[in-house]
Simulated scan of single mutants.
Amino acid sequence: MTNRFSLAHLTTLGCTPPEMTYLAARAGYDFVSLRPIYMGLPGEPNYALAENKQMMRETKEALAETGIQLLDIELARICDDVDPKKYVPAMEVAAELGGRHVLSSIWTNDRDLYMERFIELCELAKPFGLTIELEYVPIASVTNLAETLNVLRAANQENAGLMIDIHHFHRAGDKIEDLDAVPREWFRFLHLCDAPAKIPASKEEMIKILREERLYIGEGCIDIASIVERIPEIPYSIELPHNKRAQELGYEEHARRCLQTAKAYFEAYSFQKR
């Protein structure tokens, strides 16, 4: 089995998409996972490529020069106050850059609304040949595997799938054996990282760890091997933000160690795909 890895946006948050692409190539990645949808979060740069034509050209050149491929773009959130049509320019960017998937998550408790908007998002993505990968987040509105599968089954969209984040899977308390019931075609990539065994009691601490203090693969206590062996062979996007290490090592060395530890972990196990 040949594992393929993507460098996710949050791992090298301060790098522009072209910088991140060149960095990913030097560090040995196969893909990049970019965030050309600006979310307006505190301290987060704006990499909206649809609005920044120069950065878009530079990103396209970086992908062509390095041979790195765009795996996915993020994050098409389903919210009370965001029209899914707002994401169409980013979908156009993804299609032009050869991307395959759009990552989405749900941040409203209004089920009728989020079902309607999720289905609309899937329909908007179809002309671009893109899939919509639904990720659950313990601090969002759809918070675990069961809820996410319920959405996907109810939506019944051929281009919709499930994106498991190893961190969120652990924090949600999901059971590894429940992955066996997921249709194999719903798995297209996953987010890889590690974390301490103890699950934070407060939302603030949860946010701090998931955005600033994730651990290298094999460094924490998540049973990654048991999760991965139940999932088909798909790309692994390493989403492993760690502010202190990125500052001390630099983004490139941090990204390189993320990949090195992941490869070492996978080499230590023989996964039997189901």
Rank of each mutant, 00 (worst) to 15 (best):
M1K: 07
M1N: 11
R4M: 04
F5V: 04
F5W: 05
H9L: 13
T11G: 05
T16D: 13
M20H: 08
Y22N: 08
A25R: 00
R26A: 02
R26H: 09
A27N: 08
G28M: 07
S33A: 14
R35K: 15
M39V: 14
G40V: 10
P42N: 15
P42G: 11
G43C: 10
P45T: 05
P45W: 08
A50N: 11
A50I: 15
E51I: 00
Q54G: 06
Q54C: 12
M55G: 05
M56G: 08
T59G: 15
G67F: 01
P84A: 06
K86R: 12
Y87D: 10
P89N: 15
G99N: 10
R100F: 05
R100E: 06
H101V: 05
V102F: 13
S105C: 11
T108P: 13
D110I: 03
D110Y: 02
R111T: 01
D112N: 10
M115Y: 00
M115N: 01
F118D: 02
I119A: 15
E120A: 08
E120Y: 10
E120D: 11
C122T: 06
C122K: 00
G129M: 04
I132R: 05
E135D: 07
E135V: 01
Y136F: 13
P138W: 12
A140T: 07
L145Q: 05
L145S: 04
A146H: 08
T148K: 07
N156Y: 04
A160T: 02
F169A: 09
F169W: 01
R171D: 01
R171Y: 08
A172V: 02
D174C: 09
E177K: 10
A181G: 02
R184H: 06
F187E: 03
F187H: 03
L192I: 10
A195G: 10
A197R: 08
A201W: 10
S202K: 13
E204R: 11
I207G: 00
I207Q: 01
E212G: 12
R214K: 15
L215T: 07
Y216G: 02
E219Q: 13
G220N: 13
C221F: 12
C221T: 12
I222F: 07
I222H: 06
I224G: 04
V228K: 00
E229Q: 10
P235C: 07
P235D: 05
E239S: 09
L240W: 13
H242I: 13
R245Y: 13
Y251W: 15
R256P: 08
R257S: 15
C258Q: 09
A262W: 02
F266G: 05
S270E: 15
K273N: 08
R274H: 13
R274L: 13
